[in-house]
Nucleic acid binder design. Structure first.
Length: 878
DNA sequence: CATGGCTTTACC
DNA sequence: GGTAAAGC
């Protein structure tokens, strides 16, 4: 719904944006799953039969042997005979990448503990806006609570500098001698640069911790880019891999752009980028920066022109929009060449296969995310003579049931095709199908539905149950801050940051915050020492300690310095040369560009501190005069150490409040929710708008009102957990159906949620309320307990009936699904149902086929066939 | 036939 | 709503 968000241009350099990119992720997943192949050259392959399958991921040992994507497994073997080629599993005749999806989710969950501003960009990539954390750390440094030590910057690089050491040194201003840059810079600019550099550097220290946490918690390694916006973070992450991180200082942008191909920039890597280069006769980003915005808008769209113009100056205003789950869930398959689908039966077969996968994934999604897709889109490509025509058609998604989905998809295709079947042979398609895809989207939050019919009531019931009377809000808050979920952490983060930016905030609040949320780095005094003294005993950080540290870290620094040098040499030399040639070749074509060369500065350029850089000397070139020997390396690390200390001091001087995060923060929906502290001054008349429900709430009551929302949220979360637990238990426990209740007479099920939600909301049931309020519940209700036969959970006796109802509801749904399935799959023998018996797979029943389809062992899918009978009987009564 | 499958976004 | 492009 909330599409793209943009920050205010005035804050264009205020953020610290990170792109975390998992290194050859699929390979890492395979290594983790099969430790015996760890460290060997690996390429993950899908679809073996043809020439060893297509490679979709290559790890670094294999890359070293020259193996690349776009190779087949056989080619890879030639380059690297000892390569291991794990296969993407095949389910239902198509690749199944769910294990990588799950692994990606695992990683994202770790990332999310660092900031709510996490945007998953793909299965193995995520953007993070860590500005708040940086500002918090900056504050801590100012207050002496945190010191930036060199080991926080291991494996860190800075674009335009030989090593982080040099970057640190630059920031600390040791060598402000003689360089001609400051004459061109205003004092203001210098301060601005320094501030931004410091923030990036602190950001890098945090990213180091983030990456360490990912490694520790998941075992996976990743690389990261640290910059002021998404585009640049993404770009930068690619500079040093694997398992490394790179900072892009503001001032390095323009120099880097001089050798950076336009096509490397995200969004310009395809046809558009080709057009840009072709039409404007340019190659590098620096050249693009010289094209007036009007010209760009003229050649491309207006918006696009503006965007290109901005990014050419290193500006990208797109906000990091919190996103954990995909907005659509889909699957597809190609049927190239001879595999094209020509018969109706085959078409139905594959639609059925796709539908089954969709159903499975949608069900999982509903359990995990408590949402329901309301629309499905079928896409397909047909061959018309020489060319393929692809189409997509959308229809409402009424039920998570494969048979229905497949039928609807087929209908949509038929409806959209003039002559669908051959006139002379109705079993054959008039136009063969080369591609099929089904995806589901337009998700609706299930809790919204329930909210209307009484989640509120449920909550108050829970509250009553737990404490007999209304739970005091403070209790709720305490519980929330004790619990470990992310929502909760993000909330405290927002809160405390608000406090932090509020001058009145006390240190106490801040330190409370860190005790609550900073698990990785414990900033409490004792914890801090422990953290810093890891592997080294020193009571107090001091210069002396820095030096003693060098000895332990020098080797590592040396290596990375040397490595980076080598790398930079390569990149620089090749790219510079390519660039030179380019320049020579198109000198004549530049006439119109030259005529516009003295650009009229628009207001952006005037406040754009990168501008003077265009006239500056290239720091990359300066530093790439390689003087590589050990002494230099040592010197660098000494500088590094000293300079870090300088920064620690400098930070104390830097005024941080002027860079108030408030402005840009308001562009984040996440922060709109920020409770408690913000609105008081803005609504002097003692009424505030609740950002959750939009209602006017008296200021006095805002706190409790918010707690109410919090409790709702929490109970929803618990309900999800509850469901998952239930399902797991259900699928492996023997079925004993107890007496049915008449509450569930909805004959039409929309997904699964309605029944469950209805059940859960109409009658506040037990297990979940006891989950929510467990300690309280236990304390107050030492009443008699029983163990549920279904799930083995301890249930308060008086709630047992309702609890059993849950299980019944659950079974009815499954039963309904099965019935639909049977109806749709043509158990009745109708020729128009799915799937037909085919030459490929004569096994008629989908259920059977699913479990037989190669031990997918979908735990969630192990439905005991026994229960069919019981429930059928029950069901017909309704 | 030959990366394939998957997701998102901009634009019409 | 549908299509094409883009990127992983």
């Amino acid at each position: 719904m909330s599409t793209k968000q943009f920050i205010n241009i005035n804050n264009k350099y205020d953020r610290v944006v990170v792109l975390v990119d998992m290194d050859c992720f699929y390979c890492q997943v395979e290594e983790k799953l099969n430790p015996t192949i760890r460290g060997k050259p690996i390429a993950v392959v899908q679809y073996n039969p043809w020439q060893g399958g297509g490679i979709i991921a290559v790890n670094y040992p294999a890359r070293a042997k020259g193996v690349t994507r776009h190779m087949r497994g056989d080619e890879a073997k030639k380059h690297c005979p000892d390569i291991v080629l794990p296969q993407v599993p095949q389910v239902r005749g198509k690749a199944d990448i769910s294990k990588y999806r799950d692994a990606g989710k695992e990683v994202a969950a770790v990332l999310q503990t660092f900031t709510p501003l996490l945007e998953r960009a793909s299965v193995d990539e995520a953007y993070m806006d860590i500005t708040e954390r940086v500002l918090a750390r900056l504050k801590d440094m100012n207050e002496g609570k945190f010191q930036l030590l060199p080991d926080k910057l291991a494996n860190t690089f800075a674009v335009g500098y030989e090593s982080v050491g040099h970057f640190v040194q630059k920031i600390s201003g040791d060598l402000d001698d003689g360089s001609n840059s400051q004459e061109l810079e205003s004092e203001e600019d210098r301060v601005a640069y320094k501030k931004s550099d410091i923030k990036l550097l602190i950001g890098a220290s945090i990213v180091n911790e983030i990456r360490a946490a990912v490694k520790e918690k998941t075992g996976y390694e990743c690389s990261a880019g640290i910059a002021h916006n998404k585009i640049l973070a993404k770009l930068t992450a690619g500079f040093h891999k694997p398992n490394k991180q790179t900072i892009l200082p503001l001032k390095s942008i323009s120099t880097m752009y001089q050798t950076l191909s336009i096509k490397k920039v995200k969004g310009l890597g395809g046809k558009l980028g080709d057009q840009v280069c072709e039409i404007l006769k340019i190659q590098n980003m620096a050249e693009l920066a010289n094209i007036p915005e009007k010209v760009l808008q003229n050649h491309f769209e207006e918006r696009m022109g503006s965007w290109m113009h901005l990014i050419a100056k290193g500006i990208d205003l797109e906000a990091v929009t919190p996103k954990f789950n995909a907005k659509s869930i889909g699957c597809c398959k190609r049927f190239p060449g001879k595999n094209a689908i020509t018969g109706l039966a085959t078409l139905k077969h594959w639609l059925s296969e796709l539908s089954n996968e969709i159903q499975e994934r949608l069900e999982k999604d509903m359990e995990e995310n408590n949402r329901t897709a309301r629309q499905m889109t079928v896409s397909y490509a047909q061959q018309f003579g020489d060319n393929d025509v692809s189409s997509t058609r959308s229809v409402p998604l009424v039920v998570y049931e494969a048979g229905q989905i497949a039928t609807d998809a087929l209908e949509a295709i038929k409806r959209n095709t003039d002559i669908f079947l051959k006139a002379d042979n109705p079993a054959m398609l008039n136009n063969s199908v080369k591609f099929l895809g089904i995806s589901a989207g337009k998700f609706e939050d299930n809790s919204n539905v329930s909210k209307k019919n009484g989640l509120k009531a449920m909550f108050s019931n829970i509250a009553n149950k737990a404490g007999q009377t209304q739970i005091p809000q403070t209790n709720i808050c305490t519980k929330l801050s004790e619990s470990n979920n992310q929502y909760d952490e993000s909330l405290s983060l927002c809160e405390v940051m608000d406090n932090a930016s509020d001058k009145k905030s006390s240190n106490k609040e801040i330190s409370n915050f860190f005790q609550n949320t900073e698990t990785y780095e414990n900033l409490e005094n004792s914890g801090r020492e422990k953290f810093f003294d890891e592997g080294k005993k020193c009571s107090k950080p001091s210069i002396a300690n820095f030096f003693s540290k060098i000895k332990t870290s020098t080797n590592e620094t040396e290596d990375s310095v040397a490595a980076s040098k080598l790398k930079q040499q390569d990149v620089q030399s090749t790219e510079h040369e390519a660039n030179k040639n380019e320049n020579e070749m198109r000198s004549e074509d530049e006439s119109y560009l030259n005529s516009t060369q003295p650009l009229i500065e628009d207001e952006l350029s005037i406040i754009d501190p990168t501008k003077p850089d265009l006239l500056e000397e290239d720091p990359i070139q300066l530093s790439s005069e390689k003087t590589e020997n050990k002494q230099v390396a040592e010197k660098i690390s000494v500088i590094e150490i000293k300079s870090v200390d300088r920064i620690n001091q400098q930070v104390i001087q830097a005024e941080t409040s002027s860079l108030s995060s408030l402005d840009y923060r308001q562009t984040y929906a996440e922060f709109y929710r920020s409770p408690v502290t913000l609105p008081n001054m803005e609504h002097p008349q003692n009424v505030q708008i609740c950002s959750d429900c939009g209602k006017q709430v008296p200021s006095k009551e805002m706190q409790s009102h918010r707690d109410f929302h919090l409790a709702l949220q929490l109970s929803q979360q618990q309900r999800e957990k509850f469901r998952i637990e239930m399902k797991q238990k259900f699928s492996c426990s023997p079925v004993t159906v107890s007496k049915p209740k008449t509450t569930f007479n909805n004959s039409k099920v929309r997904g699964k949620s309605l029944l469950i939600d209805k059940f859960l909301t109409a009658n506040p049931p037990t297990s979940q309320s006891s989950l929510l309020t467990e300690p309280l519940h236990n304390a107050s209700a030492s009443a008699s307990m029983e163990v549920c036969n279904e799930c083995r959970k301890s249930i308060c006796s008086k709630d047992m009936q309702e609890h059993l109802d849950y299980h019944i509801a659950r079974k009815i749904q499954l039963e309904l699904n099965q019935r639909d399935m049977i109806r749709a799959t043509g158990a009745s023998g109708s020729s128009s149902t799915l799937p037909l018996t085919l030459s490929q797979k004569p096994s008629g029943n989908q259920k059977r086929k699913r479990s037989a389809a190669g031990g997918s062992a979908g735990s969630s899918d192990a439905r005991p066939p026994v229960k069919l009978k019981n429930l059928s009987t029950y069901f017909t009564k309704l």
